[in-house]
């Protein structure tokens, strides 16, 4: 309780003045401590398309195939075709304008670095960060092979990864809603007699996929 009384004894004015000074000067409070090189190495695992963050290492397609068969195929399918609701990694080329597009590394993903980064940080599912860097290179090489983007003698390395282009890299555009949607969707809306007739065109009841109601 004495600590509480001490705090209460501080005037509100002093507290406000202190935080105002902090905000105003952009000054530092001296909180936290410097991160050590070991700590940075343990946590700074992200990789960018330009190769920043990639560790030294290499892996070939055939090594990747062995790893894939043991660790990945049960969920992603023998040829990266996916299983059930678990995602396909290969195929789907040319389907992005189809009614049901198949979005895979080969058909959709813009950058190979994302494959390396994601496999390294969270695969295999349920045993994250258990793969060595070389194993991640090998699996990434095999995923390229499954997508017919490299031959079976291909070796992926820190040096050649950033230069490899995925087919859909150019398919991505920045958020353009400010030009395409906001003006179109900002007109004063109609309030009276806005339509001549209204008809129901589709019903969820026809599908019957809603979970059953809760008991009450």
């Amino acid at each position: 309780m004495s600590r509480f009384r001490d705090l209460a004894a501080l005037s509100l004015g002093v507290i406000l003045a202190a935080s105002a000074a902090f905000a105003q000067q952009g000054g530092k409070l001296g909180l936290g401590r410097p991160a050590s090189p070991d700590e940075l190495a343990a946590w700074d695992i992200d990789v960018r398309p330009d190769g920043l963050g990639l560790p030294e290492g290499r892996g070939d397609v055939l090594t990747g195939e062995e790893l894939y068969t043991g660790l990945c195929a049960a969920c992603h399918g023998d040829f990266g075709e996916g299983t059930g609701r678990l995602p396909a990694l290969a195929g789907g080329e040319g389907t992005l304008t189809d009614e049901f597009p198949v979005k895979t590394v080969g058909s959709f993903w813009p950058y190979l670095s994302t494959v390396w980064d994601y496999v390294h940080r969270t695969m295999p599912y349920g045993n994250s960060q258990s793969l060595s860097d070389d194993e991640v290179y090998a699996l990434t090489a095999y995923i390229l092979y499954l997508n017919d983007l490299v031959d079976e003698d291909f070796v992926l390395t820190r040096e050649n990864l950033p230069a490899i282009r995925l087919p859909n890299e150019g398919g991505f555009i920045p958020d353009d809603r400010a030009g395409t949607e906001l003006p179109a969707f900002s007109a004063e809306p109609c309030m009276e007699n806005c339509k001549d007739r209204v008809e129901i065109t589709a019903r969820a009841g026809a599908l019957d996929v809603t979970p059953e109601a809760e008991e009450r």
């Binding site: 992200d46 304008t97 993903w109 994302t114 991505f172 555009i173 920045p174």
Partner: peptide, 22 residues
């Protein structure tokens, strides 16, 4: 960084095959 959740996921595939990101 173009991570998985901002490339493969959470991007908006448009009818013409282009995809909005961010």
């Amino acid at each position: 960084w173009h991570q998985r959740e901002e490339t493969s996921k959470y991007t908006d595939l448009l009818g013409d095959g282009r995809t909005r990101r961010f």
